[in-house]
Design a protein around this nucleic acid. Structure first.
Lengths: 149, 149
DNA sequence: GTGAATCCATACCAATCTGGTCTTGTTTCG
DNA sequence: CGAAACAAGACCAGATTGGTATGGATTCAC
């Protein structure tokens, strides 16, 4: 099905919730409630996002999580990478040495290109585009146009 | 990592092997040997591909599998769909009713668009592009250009 | 300084998915 | 008929994923 993981999905929902507060510091408990996720699950995702620098964590009373950059400065690709690591469609295109007959394989290079093309597409989409209601066509204007090769 | 499954990867390798024979009928055992896959695994993949109509199975002595369409008539998207079902990045964008708060969620529609964009990109790539040696720039000319929205 | 609120780290578990194997047909041709 | 080849399905083990639990550390309000 060529899918992102559920946790990555949650990440976008949580980030969208944060984005709507526009820079405010929101505790995990409240984000969990708003997004209707279980608190531990939300906390896990938020921690991962914080570790990769997409959001900042603030401890203590009145602490919480906060967006580091403006919603239109955070790409969907960055979110996926934060949650799942490098974007690569096949195992072998991630790094050399994973497949026995890499040397004779003509497919590997092409899979890498395809992966890069997909990544570029996600790179041009931002968190802002994501949480913008779909009806608002103008909002999706930052169109992703790209070519493979 | 946003990846396709290993079986889908195998499918492309097997199809590429078939494509290089250009329409010939090749037994599963030989395809397995060429691609260095275990026979049962290759057989499983081939069966799935046959069921979705990408290849034809011919029984009996001198039987085997055979490409139905020319390599440049089989899209990468079709291969992925054959192995993994409908292309959708998130669970919820596959069909309605899977997520409790679908109605208020502004992300769902946008994920659908992104998924469609990725699918279109894969649609324009063919098996021929895949098994063509990467060095041959001209071969990858059927450029995938697309836009999200 | 104390305590409550909040994040942090880690370990753990259960369910699902994936990749792979095995067994038993069924079809076709020599 | 009998061998070669595919067909179909059950089955299993390991990995991944999603979710839970626990104990600790940090900050602020008072």
């Amino acid at each position: 099905m060529l899918r992102i993981s559920k946790l990555t999905d949650y990440a976008t929902v949580l980030l969208a919730a944060l984005a709507q507060r526009d820079g405010a510091c929101v505790p995990a408990s409240q984000l969990a409630e708003e997004t209707r996720l279980e608190l531990p699950t939300a906390a896990k995702v938020l921690k991962t996002l914080a570790k990769s620098g997409l959001i900042r964590s603030i401890r203590g009373v009145n602490g919480g999580y906060q967006l580091v950059k403006a919603p239109d400065q955070t790409s969907v690709a960055a979110i996926v990478r934060a949650m799942e690591g490098p974007i690569a469609l096949t195992e072998c295109s991630l790094e050399p040495g994973l497949c026995a007959h890499e040397s004779q394989c003509t497919l590997r290079g092409n899979w890498q290109r395809i992966g890069q093309a997909v990544e570029q597409a996600l790179e041009r989409l931002t968190l802002r585009d994501l949480y913008q209601p779909a009806g608002d066509e103008a909002a999706l204007a930052p169109v992703a146009t790209f070519r493979i090769m």
